[in-house]
Computed example of a mutant assay.
Amino acid sequence: MPEVADGSADLPPHWENVKFRSSSEIRSHPSFQEAHDCLVDGLLSLYSNNRVLLRGLTEFVRAVSFMVIICLDALNEPEDPETWVTLSRLRDALRTMGITDARRISNIVNGLELDGFLTREISTVDRRTRILKPTEKMLETDRDWLAVFHAPLALLYPDEPAFKAALALDPAYQAAYRRISLSTLGLANRISQDNPIIGFFLSHNVGIRVLMALASMVRGKPDVRTLPGFYTAAAERAGVSRTHVSNLMQESANRGYVALSIPAGHYVEMLPILQDALAQWISDSLSGVDFVSSLAMPRT
């Protein structure tokens, strides 16, 4: 969200006076590298003990669908049919993020129901309507996600009550944050659009997880290269095959994001363009979280 975070984009009138940290302010913080590493490690460890979550929620469309259902539910008023979380409303909301494949959305919802993340309830007002309802398992999983994205901000700004609330897995803060999140989906989409290199990894199955593994394994190395065995190690961390990781790295090399050893397999070098892109995406994302948090906190 560089334009929004730096104040050059138009905001709705009721957002104009919101105080939040810009992307450039966050990236210039003396402890930004520590916050950067905090998010990398957080995303790398998130859901690591649950392969269902790992495979299902590190892929962009599934993760966004999961989050939007929770946002819609936070705004649900049982007596107002316009706010019910139906499959139709979910599809409408996902269009904001450029997700338009109705069949895929239905399949994702079916999968979430089978995995115990949501239920379908018959409306007491209109028995033809099925209302999607997040389970406590789904809400707990979302609180874990919120904690990972608030932890770097808590590191940079330890006195902020909102960041403390997120780290404490506070349901009241979660509800307030998610009520605001739906109206900021367009800004979240802009983060992806303005960071196309990271968008490339987000668009691939567990691609962001593999990228976090790469960033973690080259940390502190002057040559920014992994040790031998990266493909195997990343595959284990991401819950995919070694071939999947190898193919992703080959495509990344073709795009100029990484350099691969010859013969292949000895190392993967994270090139400066990817290092900078990751830092920019992290600072943009943290600014976005701070923005939503600034709107949500008065409602907690």
Score class of each variant (00 low, 15 high):
M1N: 07
M1K: 02
H14Y: 12
V18D: 00
S31F: 01
E34A: 15
C38H: 05
G42I: 05
S45A: 12
L46M: 12
V52C: 07
L53R: 13
D73I: 00
L75G: 04
P78G: 01
E79A: 15
E82C: 03
T83P: 09
S88W: 02
L90C: 12
R91V: 07
L94T: 06
T100P: 01
R104N: 10
D115R: 09
G116F: 04
F117Q: 12
T119H: 14
E121R: 15
I122T: 15
S123Y: 02
S123M: 04
V125K: 10
K133E: 06
E136A: 08
K137Q: 11
D142E: 15
R143L: 12
A147H: 09
A151E: 14
A154F: 07
L155S: 08
P158G: 11
D159W: 07
E160N: 13
A162P: 10
L167F: 05
D170G: 05
A176W: 03
Y177L: 13
R178H: 12
N189A: 12
R190E: 05
D194T: 14
D194P: 03
N195Q: 13
I197P: 00
I198C: 15
L214G: 11
A215Q: 14
R219G: 05
D223Q: 09
L227S: 07
F230Y: 14
S246L: 11
Q250P: 00
N254Q: 15
R255V: 03
G256F: 08
L260G: 08
I262D: 09
I262Y: 12
D276Y: 05
L278C: 00
A279E: 11
S285C: 09
S285D: 07
S287I: 06
S287Q: 06
V289E: 02
D290H: 00
M297Y: 15
